[in-house]
């Protein structure tokens, strides 16, 4: 009888503990782990700007969350346009961008991208002007969110022999690891200081090398255009460390210019 009581007690404890653990389970947080770059409010609409990581010169994906300033409800029906502005005092310029392709979203964020061709310096700061039309409240306005852009060597403008300036960037440089990678470049043609368009009619050659070692790597594939100024190829990084990628732009068979981009493979 004493044994039976002990078993009953243990069983009861198990049930209680199990029950407790069930009731204390936290709901899964599905919010993406974005970094908040800044927030601003105008005309009853709050604009929050996010990115995957700290901004670096080159290609950066950013995410815009639109909220009703009073109820904090997420607005999923809006028209958004980002205009990055580099303010250097005497002059201002923008950079290539990719605007949201949808005005109605099912998630919480409007996806966008910018190709910062330079980093924040003591003489030049970046801010993101966000023009919006909140279709829920039917109000239009704009906000400016200052951002800091760190240094990287994954983006450079090239003044080419066809009298155009192209901005070349490795779009997915943060994803590069040892071995063969699907590498993605963006190439934009500069129309003027504030306007850029995707370059869709060029071809690219790409050569990865390790400057410290003096060797390259086998089994690379030159990038080819896929859409909207994006070029995809294969880059083989045979070890970690700093790699130099020489990107050559061609029109037909004619080379019109080349640049060298650098990235550090960490794993």
């Amino acid at each position: 009888m004493k044994t039976l009581s002990l078993y009953t007690l243990v069983l009861a404890l198990v049930i209680i503990v199990s029950g407790c653990s069930t009731t204390t389970t936290e709901p899964t947080n599905t919010t993406p782990a974005y970094i908040k770059l800044g927030t601003a409010t105008a005309s009853g609409t709050t604009i929050e700007l996010y990115a995957d990581d700290s901004l670096l010169s080159g290609y950066n994906t950013m995410y815009v969350k639109v909220l009703d300033a009073y109820s904090k409800a997420i607005v999923r029906d809006a028209h958004i346009q980002l205009i990055p502005i580099m303010d250097m005092g005497m002059m201002k310029h923008s950079c290539p961008t990719e605007q949201p392709t949808q005005t109605v979203i099912t998630g919480d964020y409007f996806r966008t991208a910018a190709v910062f061709q330079m980093s924040t310096t003591p003489n030049g700061t970046w801010k993101i002007k966000v023009e919006f039309h909140n279709h829920v409240s039917d109000k239009e306005d704009e906000v400016e969110i200052p951002v800091t852009v760190g240094e990287s060597n994954c983006c450079k403008p090239i003044k080419c022999t066809d009298n155009n300036t192209y901005v070349v960037a490795i779009a997915n440089h943060m994803e590069m690891i040892t071995g063969v990678n699907n590498i993605e470049f963006t190439v934009h043609r500069k129309i003027d200081d504030m306007t850029y368009e995707p370059a869709t009619n060029i071809s690219m050659e790409m050569t990865p090398e390790m400057p410290s070692m003096g060797h390259g790597s086998p089994n690379n594939a030159d990038p080819v255009h896929v859409a909207n100024g994006h070029y995809k190829g294969k880059a083989n990084f045979t070890m970690t460390g700093e790699w130099r990628i020489t990107a050559t732009l061609k029109l037909g068979d004619t080379s019109i210019g080349s640049t060298q981009l650098y990235l550090t493979i960490k794993k």
């Binding site: 400057p211 410290s212 070692m213 070890m239 970690t240 460390g241 700093e242 550090t264």
Partner: peptide, 12 residues
Amino acid sequence: MIPLDNKPEMFL
């Protein structure tokens, strides 16, 4: 591989 001139270290 540790460059003498403060370049990033390499590893394999």
